[in-house]
């Protein structure tokens, strides 16, 4: 392991002196898969990269939203014992908590759905199994997001 002996050109003592220098540079080799004007248009978008980035961005926001939610619901002011219809009505009287809960619902559902999509892709080996599991996942996700949004927007404290 005597890597320190290699010269600045990256060629070790065994290979001898470099054939090339600043005045006599090595020929440029074209990258084999470089896209040119002649190569067909890529059919793949950047969805997976966008999903990867979304997981990190939504994750940071969710840490704040969810831990705040846990503090309010389970820790402060008597913990879970105080939760009831009146408590929900009191919180959703404020637009601040409506927006908080709406944002938390959307981000958490999309974050979780994308996570489960990854898990399904990893473990369901048959194409048909993946299709059905993801169909079920997307149906449940759309249903839950729409139901939750509807509940927040149409909440009526005087329902009775």
């Amino acid at each position: 392991m005597s890597t320190s002996e290699s010269t600045a050109s990256g060629i070790g003592p065994v290979e001898g002196a470099s054939l090339y220098s600043v005045d006599n540079p090595a020929p440029v080799i074209e990258p084999p898969r470089k896209r040119t004007r002649k190569s067909p248009k890529s059919t793949r978008g950047n969805f997976e990269m966008a999903a990867w980035l979304f997981m990190r961005l939504s994750g940071v926001v969710l840490v704040v939203l969810v831990i705040g939610h846990l503090l309010i619901q389970l820790v402060l002011d008597g913990g879970v014992s105080k939760i009831g219809f009146a408590f929900v009505a009191g919180r959703w009287a404020s637009p601040f908590w409506q927006v908080w809960d709406l944002l938390m619902l959307w981000l958490a559902m999309l974050h979780g759905a994308n996570g489960l999509r990854t898990v399904i892709n990893d473990y369901a080996e048959r194409a048909n199994t993946r299709l059905w599991l993801k169909g079920l996942l997307y149906t449940a996700t759309v249903f839950t997001i729409l139901l939750g949004t509807l509940v927040i927007f149409t909440f009526d404290p005087n329902i009775r």
Binding site: V88, M109, G112, G115, L116, G148, D156
Partner: peptide, 23 residues
């Protein structure tokens, strides 16, 4: 933990939706 939280979230939205049924 991610899968467990997702399943709870699904149930949690359903139980909260009961505020639209009756107190």
């Amino acid at each position: 933990t991610g899968v467990l939280i997702f399943f709870f979230l699904f149930v949690h939205v359903l139980d909260t939706a009961l505020v639209r049924v009756s107190p």
